[in-house]
Simulated scan of single mutants.
Amino acid sequence: MLKQIEEWIRQVNQSHAPQRQSCSRFEEPFSGFYSPGFLNSAYFVVVDQIPKPDLPGLRAAGLGDFIDMDVAGITYDDTYYVQRSVANELRLHFHELVHVVQWRQLQPLGFITRYLDEIQAHGYNDAPLEKMAYRLDGHYQANGKSFDVEDYVRTNL
């Protein structure tokens, strides 16, 4: 099933490639948090509906609630998707960029495996990868002191 999910993600990202926008546009608001090189190699797509892999195997694994959950954004490898209605919310972009760093550190199959295991074991709100992203986006939203998010994620995964 993991290879099927990875292939689905590859196809989704490929089909949305013409709409991808570089995260380099966030260089100023995220200065001190994310490096310009990282932002230049991360992308987002504004969509009316968040793409999710509604695969029978995921539902059989007890992940139906996660698949059906209404989310504002989701990350697949170096690209994340945000709903049009919240596309200008910096906190959301900050959060999804944390997930891009996590994807890079864990690699696709590693991220997919860990993320699904965490959702199954802890639920979405208590999944460690999500808790990290929410903690960091909350720090940003509260005008917290800047720090290297990429290094933080590498050290704390």
Rank of each mutant, 00 (worst) to 15 (best):
F26A: 00
E28S: 02
F30Q: 03
G32L: 11
G32C: 07
G32F: 05
Y34P: 01
Y34F: 15
S35Y: 05
P36T: 08
L39C: 08
L39K: 04
L39G: 01
N40H: 12
N40T: 03
N40M: 13
Y43H: 10
Y43G: 00
F44W: 12
F44Q: 02
V45Y: 06
V47M: 10
D48H: 14
D48E: 11
I50E: 02
K52L: 10
K52G: 04
P56L: 05
P56H: 05
L58C: 04
A60K: 11
L63F: 06
F66P: 02
F66C: 05
D68K: 05
A72N: 11
I74C: 07
T75P: 12
T79E: 01
T79D: 02
S85H: 11
S85G: 07
V86S: 09
L92D: 01
L92H: 03
L92Y: 05
L97D: 04
R104E: 13
L106S: 06
G110V: 09
F111V: 03
F111Q: 04
I112A: 04
T113G: 00
T113H: 06
Y115C: 03
D117T: 06
E118W: 10
I119C: 11
Q120I: 03
Q120Y: 08
H122Q: 11
Y124C: 05
Y124G: 03
Y124I: 09
D126A: 12
D126Y: 14
A127T: 05
L129C: 00
E130Q: 12
Y134H: 12
R135T: 01
L136G: 01
A142H: 15
A142Q: 15
A142R: 15
S146G: 05
S146F: 02
F147W: 12
F147E: 11
V149M: 04
V149Q: 00
V149P: 01
D151F: 07
